[in-house]
Nucleic acid binder design. Structure first.
Ligand code: SF4
Ligand code: SF4
Lengths: 161, 161
DNA sequence: GTATTAAGGATAGTGATTGTCCTTAGTATA
DNA sequence: TATACTAAGGACAATCACTATCCTTAATAC
């Protein structure tokens, strides 16, 4: 079980979109080039983000994408769920129904204990993702990346917005 | 992204193995029949659990599996990691390396901020799984399932141990 | 009108999950 | 000792989700 690689792409793209000047848009082409990933496929992830209302796109030359909200109002969970979906990572196939000791007049009791525990863990994962915002990420990156690289990247983005 | 169905099987099997009388073993055949899943494939999950030291098997007639430790010393995490592996659910392909503004003399700084956040969420998920033990599950099930079904199941298991 | 863009449908290629079959070796019982 | 039963595990094939590419359509700026 592993998250799709689009998750990594989406997170990085949102991080980069946070550097786009106000009122401007950054096209898919630039995002794909910056990260060295296929433009066509990255487009699918961006479409998912757009549908989820995390980013918004506009057409034409000068078109592209920008964040739909301020970085402080976008969480990792928003991005992950846009690409990966909101469904729980644990799927229950109700194998308890096969229990030979279960009378056929099954009163379909509430969801079983196993599923409840797994769903609780899933919720803990999502809660953790929800606790980090895009603005927090920008701050972490600012501490990691040398200022000159950061400035150059911002310039690179601005030139294509 | 979704957990493999063997996770559900493994959890249920461990739950059932907790009902095996002391010194006895329950064979794969019985576990598969009880849950209505293919015996051959379930066997793979049980082998993984065995290798992880969660359960232990023995050969011959009267052979089968039993828990390797007391239910209070087996957590959901033990079972999930035995089947699903210990690797993080987030894989980083280092796409930041493609950044055109990054000088080639990359000093491979520490793992990036994005990965750190994702790994932290992964850790929260595992921590939640770790907090529930097999003995807790038995208690939850005892509250959910009618006593007569519970007794009949225990009888069913004992007859095949 | 032309160039550029997002949106999205259609369709392969790839790889992991799922499932089956078979062999090998250890164990209990008669 | 012979037999029946078991776990362990290797070798596949089938299925399905993920990855990737290509193409069409519609909106926008110039
Ligand atoms: S017992 Fe729980 S996890 Fe198992 S099949 Fe039933 S609902 Fe699903
Ligand atoms: S920035 Fe982090 S998540 Fe992105 S490629 Fe680099 S290490 Fe991986």
């Amino acid at each position: 079980m592993i998250l799709k690689n689009q998750i990594e792409w989406a997170l990085h793209c949102c991080s980069l979109l946070a550097a786009v000047p106000d009122g401007c848009y950054l096209p898919t082409k630039a995002l794909a080039e910056f990260h060295g990933v296929p433009k066509e496929y990255l487009s699918k992830a961006l479409q998912a983000l757009s549908q989820a209302g995390v980013i918004e796109g506009t057409l034409g030359p000068t078109g592209g994408y920008r964040l739909a909200r301020r970085p402080s109002e976008i969480t990792f969970l928003d991005i992950v769920e846009a690409v990966e979906g909101k469904a729980s990572t644990f799927a229950c196939t109700e194998i308890r129904k096969a229990n030979p000791c279960l009378p056929s007049k099954t009163k379909t009791s509430k969801t079983c204990a196993v599923a409840r525990v797994m769903w609780k863990a899933d919720a803990a994962w999502r809660e953790s993702l929800k606790s980090t915002r895009l603005s927090d990420l920008a701050q972490m990156i600012a501490e990691d990346v040398p200022p000159e690289v950061l400035a150059k990247s911002a310039e690179w983005v601005a030139a294509r917005s």
